[in-house]
Computed example of a mutant assay.
Amino acid sequence: MATTLSDSFVVTQVKPLIGAVVKSDKETLLSGRHAAQIRALLEDRGVIVFSRTDFTDEEQVAFTKTLGKFAREMTGDVFKISMDKAVNPMADYTRGAFYWHIDGTMDRVPLFASMLTAKILSSSGGNTEFCNTYAAWDALPDDEKAQLEKLRVVHSLVNAQLYVQPEPGLAEYDAWAKLGTNELPLVWTHKSGRKSLVLGSTAEYIVGMDPVESRRLLIRLREWATQDQFSLSHTWSVGDTVIWDNTGTMHRATAYPLDSKREMHRTKLEGEEEFA
């Protein structure tokens, strides 16, 4: 179903519970005229695809700034996501992107949104998958919701990096552990009143629960949240730009050859509310 807001801004839903494609032109997007509608779409649909915008880095930064407070990367305005260490010296850390996660679970206030533009594609694989953690929460039975709302989860970089390197050396482990841990609610009650699940690869254990049962519940909820009705997989074309609500989705990259030179350019919007 397509909704026409103007001749230069047409929205089409991807799936009933997640995703939208916006057909627009670069001038319209950069003008900011539809910034309010884009932000509303983000909360409602979780993920928005702008097909083949072909943004330059400067244009992507400008577009991002129309939607909220711009968050700079450690290396500048744009982060080049690549497994080529000549392009991305943090490539080893970036391999964590192959597992379901929310950006910023080690922070008090996570990012509001992230945006990627595809520059170079891999010969195979390399989709980006998203799931709607609002919709996943809404669909749970009421009796289970009552139990889950009481739970808190400890998150750590260690847990996320063990997905990538399950047998680290002690020095490597100690380097990960320096970031410490962060205890968060399993269920985030947002300022809007809506609720979402806080899961992902950083989720290490549920406070006060038997370790085996804790791990089992986190796996079961991840499977629940990432099932087909709540998720989508975006197949990239060069020049596509995708933005997602980091507070109401999880995401991951699907496997691709690490020597493929695949390159995505990321910009971010600062967080606007704490985990609660």
Rank of each mutant, 00 (worst) to 15 (best):
V154M: 03
T189C: 00
D57P: 10
D92Q: 09
R45Y: 11
D107F: 13
K69G: 07
T189R: 03
A118E: 06
S122N: 08
I120C: 03
T241G: 01
N127C: 10
A20F: 11
A175E: 14
P257A: 04
T202D: 00
I18Q: 02
V238W: 05
E273A: 06
S233K: 05
L186S: 08
I206C: 03
F79K: 07
G46Y: 07
A86Y: 12
D77P: 07
M90S: 15
F230D: 05
D174E: 15
L29Y: 11
G104P: 11
I38N: 06
V154S: 12
R152E: 12
K80Y: 15
I120Y: 13
V164L: 02
S233G: 09
D228A: 13
D210L: 00
S231N: 08
H101K: 03
V10H: 09
R220M: 05
M209R: 14
A203W: 04
Y134W: 13
Q161H: 13
L218K: 06
I38T: 12
L197F: 12
L67D: 10
V47H: 04
Q165D: 14
G169P: 09
K15H: 15
R45E: 12
V21Q: 12
F50I: 04
E272S: 10
L148H: 15
H265K: 03
E270L: 07
G248I: 04
D143Q: 09
L148E: 09
L148F: 13
P211Q: 02
G32K: 01
T202P: 00
R216D: 14
A71I: 00
L184P: 12
G96P: 05
G248C: 10
T12R: 04
A160T: 08
A97G: 12
E149M: 02
E183I: 04
L17H: 14
A40Q: 15
V21N: 09
D210R: 03
A171Y: 11
R52M: 08
G180L: 00
S156A: 06
H34T: 08
Y99M: 00
T249H: 07
A20M: 01
S6T: 13
L179T: 14
P185F: 01
I120R: 13
G104F: 05
K150N: 10
E213D: 15
P185Y: 02
I102Q: 12
D174L: 03
V47F: 05
T3H: 11
H234Q: 05
T128C: 01
A2R: 11
T226P: 07
T105S: 08
L258S: 11
F98V: 11
E270M: 07
A113R: 03
V158M: 01
S260R: 04
S214Q: 07
E73M: 07
A225K: 06
F70W: 12
D259M: 01
M209F: 15
Y134M: 00
G200N: 05
L162W: 11
W100Y: 10
V158I: 03
A255N: 12
A177G: 11
A136I: 06
D143G: 02
D92C: 00
F79Q: 05
S201I: 02
W236V: 02
V21A: 03
Y173A: 02
A160W: 10
F79D: 08
L258T: 15
D210I: 09
